[in-house]
Design a protein around this nucleic acid. Sequence first.
DNA 1: CGATACGTCCTTTTT
DNA 2: GGACGTATCG
Length: 727
Amino acid sequence: MDLTILNDKQLEAVNHVNGPALVIAGAGSGKTRVLTHRIANLIFKHGVSPYRILSITFTNKAANEMRERVEELINNDVRDMWIGTFHGVCVRILRRHIEKLGYDRSFVIFDADDQKVVIKESISDLQLNTNDFDVNSIRSLISQQKNNRINPDLFLKENSGDYRSRKIAEIYQLYEKKLKKSNGLDFDDLIVKTIDLFERHEDVLNYYRQQFSYILVDEYQDTNRVQYLLVKMLGKNKSENENVFVVGDEDQSIYGWRGADIRNILGFEKDFPDARIIKMERNYRSSQNILEAANKVISHNTQRMNKDLWTEDKKGDKIQLYQANSEKAEALHIAERIYNEKNIHKTSYEDIAVLVRTRAQTRSIEERFVMEGIPYRIVGGQEFYGRKEIKDLMAYLKLVQNNHENYSFMRVVNVPKRGIGKKTIEHLQNISDEKGLSLMQSVEALQAGEISKKAWQELGAFRKRITDFTHKSKEATLYDLIEEIFIESGYRGFLEKDKTIEGRARLENVQEFFSKVKDYEEKNAEDSLEDFIAHISLLTDIEKTEDSEGERVTIMTVHSAKGLEFDVVVIAGLEEKMFPISRDNDEDLEEERRLFYVAITRAKKRLYLTYAQDRMIYGSYESRKKSRFLDELPQKIMNANTKHHEIGITRKEEDVFTGGYVTKPPQESEKSHKEGTGPIFSPGERIEHKKWGLGTVVQVKGDEITVAFKEKGIKVMMMPYAPIEKV
DNA sequence: CGATACGTCCTTTTT
DNA sequence: GGACGTATCG
């Protein structure tokens, strides 16, 4: 292990062994390196067994990378090390002990969509109206309560004053009951139940307290109250050392709305008075100009420790600011920038990111990229696992794993259509309510004649199939099981029948899913069906986005970009009410500013900022003001312009087809080629013009060829006469 | 029972 | 502008 590559601060952190420590790791200061080296150091130099190390990361991906890097450093496997997200680690603990809390160890995880279904059902069970009780806000309210360890009873006690709160308490109560009945835990429960477990069963707590001699927590600024409690339970007041080593950056705390409490990091010294504090301020990522911008912006915040990033890197390019007329013009400008990056700076697409504040902004950018043929990927969004066909298959899996899981039952009992309709389901639910049975058990209890003959037959067959799958799941491999479900459930036939483009895409998605399953199986041979399901549930957006092969520009929210870095970053939509999105109070504004800070510090070499004067909001145009954050940037390192087309494309309207290059070949161009005598050109091809230099074919129509030249803009020529050649 | 036709509401950010 | 849910018909 080579420690000479570390700077003084990093070395101090790596060599820290016993006692609590807080590492303030500024953006790009080599935090991951410190974490991996410290773990390697503990194992290698201090003989700590990997099994005694608990390392908590923000994503599973980060966990995997960390494990791999440690293994490289010490040239040994660290399979026994506990490493994962808070949620992942808690699942692992709960799988072992949750029976002590009256759950079955095969519990299922309810994601946000699942939660909504349950909440909706609860609202209607209570004869309430979803107009008065918004599902989304109730979901986040429940989440908030859980993160503060407020159960329904306590919530009621604290809010019994008004009618509305009492009703919400009832919904919360019913929601909990339903979850428990389905043997389900939501995301927050994973942490909360682990704490409950530790509280009620001291022996279990002591077991883990003893096991985890060394605890590391990454992204500590984004821990919420219960996560904080968990860390304290495991790491505080130990007979041996309180070896809690947390790494974070208060300036990058961006999850306050999710319950993350910046005070956890700001107050670490209070919790651990003899903690060692190490500040890492040297940045290895960005140019001086970018850092200066970041420092200046964040200095407007009050909720922070004093910290200034510095670098030995060169000044670098100025920051480019662009004011567009509309979100469409903004998107066009971004496309042009990317065109330039690609062609002038030779930047690879994968080194470019477009960051936005809200998901809705991705649409116009995506549209323009499609038009210009710029390859991209959107993180999150309608991601892979959110697609209907994948969710359906997952629901089948969940139902196979646990036949009594009612929500999965409801989801797939009539998918593909089997003539089991609303009436039948209602009837089943009545039986279920009366006799306290699961829906699957209610099918068994059903008497012939109670429902239509067809539904009766189909339900019987459905039940048999699911139980057969369950038997099969005990011996077959995951892949074989899922394949059998796909075929035998009739889902494959159903998809194959659909000859539309969407139908085909669905089938392809399922194929993709199968290859992911295979992949998972190879990597996690010992894992069970429930491990697989939990694994999928706990993936983050970044992880869920297909790592599509090939070079692509990444479009994503700033939140998703946390922890990543790119040569070139575009931040779009820098307008009031967008970024910052709200300014209800100073605290919110500071979090918005931190978010902007995170966005800026993703960039290594070049940073482009854009905003629009008018933006389409809910279908009509609204006039916008530029973001106050722009005024907080040091003007001397900025390069602002409003009308600017470096690649020399001339055009009047922003919506006119322009600019980029690789476009989809129009059908008719094929024909014209055959008739021509000269060389055949097709859109996307690079050509050279005798006089105008390099360009890219945009469109071919009859004898007319449209070419975008680097210097001269768009030109239309007659193919047989133009002095052009393929490059 | 399922397919189509309109009205509603929406946008923070996600483990 | 469009996703999603309810109303209405075949």
